[in-house]
Simulated assay, not measured.
Amino acid sequence: MSSPPYTPALRTGDWIAVSGQVPLRDGTFLTDRPFGEQVDAVLANVSDRLAEHGAGLGDVVKTTVFLTDMSDYSVLNERWVAAFAEPRPSRSCVAVAGLPFDVRVEVEAWAVAPAD
């Protein structure tokens, strides 16, 4: 797989913007896995992108979730609660007709960068 035509995570000032992450681990899309495992992989990817800038999931303040099937919403919420401690980041969840590579979920995030 070639490099994407965008920056996966970018720090600007006190902010880290994480581009939409999908259920991709070790170069393989997890589209054949149960939806909960796909969400776990997406959140692990968000965490990995944040770690590249010295941050973690606890630094996230805003997320946007894209789902191709809103019937997955309850599983998303279960995995979300397991991944994010209180207070959880604000979140928007949008139903979409499709996502790249036929994945079912994508998450983008904004985090406050830790002090240097």
Score class of each variant (00 low, 15 high):
Gln21Ser: 09
Val96Cys: 05
Arg104Phe: 00
Glu108Trp: 08
Phe35Thr: 07
Ala111Arg: 07
Val65Pro: 00
Lys62Leu: 14
Tyr6Gly: 10
Leu67Ser: 02
Trp15Val: 14
Leu67Met: 02
Asp59Glu: 09
Gly98Trp: 09
His53Ala: 00
Glu37Leu: 07
Val42Trp: 05
Phe84Cys: 01
Thr64Phe: 05
Asp48Asn: 10
Asp40Met: 04
Ser2Ile: 06
Asp14Pro: 11
Glu37Ser: 09
Pro100Asn: 09
Gly98Met: 12
Ala97Leu: 15
Leu99Thr: 05
Ser74Ala: 15
Val42Lys: 00
Asp59Phe: 10
Val65Ser: 00
Arg49Glu: 12
Glu52Tyr: 00
Phe66His: 15
Thr64Ile: 09
Asp69Met: 02
Ala9Cys: 09
Val65Asn: 02
Gly54His: 08
Val65Lys: 01
Asp48Thr: 15
Val112Leu: 10
Gly36Arg: 03
Val46Phe: 07
Ala111Met: 06
Leu76Arg: 05
Val107Thr: 00
Ala55Leu: 05
Ser92Tyr: 14
Arg33Asp: 11
Arg25Phe: 06
Phe101Glu: 14
Gly98Phe: 06
Val105Ile: 15
Thr7Cys: 13
Tyr73Gln: 14
Pro5His: 12
Ser74Asp: 15
Thr12Leu: 14
His53Phe: 04
Val46Trp: 04
Thr68Tyr: 07
Gly98Ala: 14
Ala83Pro: 11
Ser71Asp: 03
Leu76Gln: 03
Leu99Gln: 01
Asn77Ser: 15
Val60Asn: 03
Gly54Asn: 04
Asp69Tyr: 02
Ala55Pro: 01
Ala51Trp: 04
Tyr73Trp: 13
Ala111Ile: 02
Asp14His: 10
Ala17Gly: 10
Pro8Glu: 06
Ser47His: 12
Thr12Asn: 09
Ala109Trp: 02
Trp110Arg: 13
Ala51Leu: 04
Leu67Val: 08
Gly20Ile: 06
Val46Pro: 08
Phe101His: 10
Pro8Ile: 03
Ala115Met: 10
Val18Ser: 03
Arg88Ile: 02
